[in-house]
Design a protein around this nucleic acid. Structure first.
Lengths: 109, 109
DNA sequence: TCCATATTTCCAGAATAATGGAAATATTAA
DNA sequence: TTAATATTTCCATTATTCTGGAAATATGGA
């Protein structure tokens, strides 16, 4: 994962509404949730939600597919995993021995 | 780690200069680096750096200690670990079985 | 005490992000 | 084809963040 993408992914989550949004989609699992349902759950207007959905989608952390009139959003776990790997790697590289910062079972990316 | 703190920590890293700053401090390890040296490395004015240092320090991801005329900044790995744990937990909770998203050796925070 | 160095705070301007209403688009059903 | 539903795009406003110069503060040395 490249530095620019990392910043974008972090920015996607670095805002209360969007973090809530992402967490909601993670809870829903692979079947995802329609935009209207998300708006209802989060208690925000469709327009505002659309702005945030677009933001998070750009980063790759969520994906969309149309189903009839609705558009279903769901979390993309792979991108989250890449983000976590990047952070783990950055957290650890200076002192692999002294911290419990690294997962010894997973090699750095 | 609480949702507000998470947003703050993510926001600390969701900006190119600050991500570079944090990575630089991770590279330096526990002995850290003086503000002036950081500014030189990153090629930014002291004022701008001070703004970003303050931002990241607020989140707890870095800490400062005075040494003579200089102020030495260093990465706080614990907070990064908490952040990673939070993300891992959020990434996994919907489908613990199907993904390699969780570290099975570490209990969720 | 006076000066040099390191860093911060203060401040104002520029840039970017967030919000939400109105109108546009896509889809389905009657 | 007309109407209803779901969502988005357009746009203007407000809010927040970023930037860097000038001045203030802290420290150590002559």
């Amino acid at each position: 994962m490249e530095s620019n993408q990392v910043v974008q992914a972090l920015a996607s989550l670095a805002q209360v509404t969007r973090l809530d949004l992402y967490r909601l989609l993670v809870q829903q699992g692979p079947q995802g949730l329609a935009a209207g349902q998300i708006a209802k759950q989060l208690g925000i207007p469709a327009t505002t939600l659309s702005f945030h959905l677009n933001h998070v989608q750009q980063s790759g952390l969520i994906t969309a597919k149309r189903a009839g009139r609705s558009i279903i959003y769901s979390a993309n776990y792979q991108v989250m995993q890449q983000l976590i790997d990047y952070l783990s790697h950055n957290c650890c590289e200076a002192q692999p021995a002294s911290s419990d910062c690294c997962n010894p079972d997973r090699s750095p990316t």
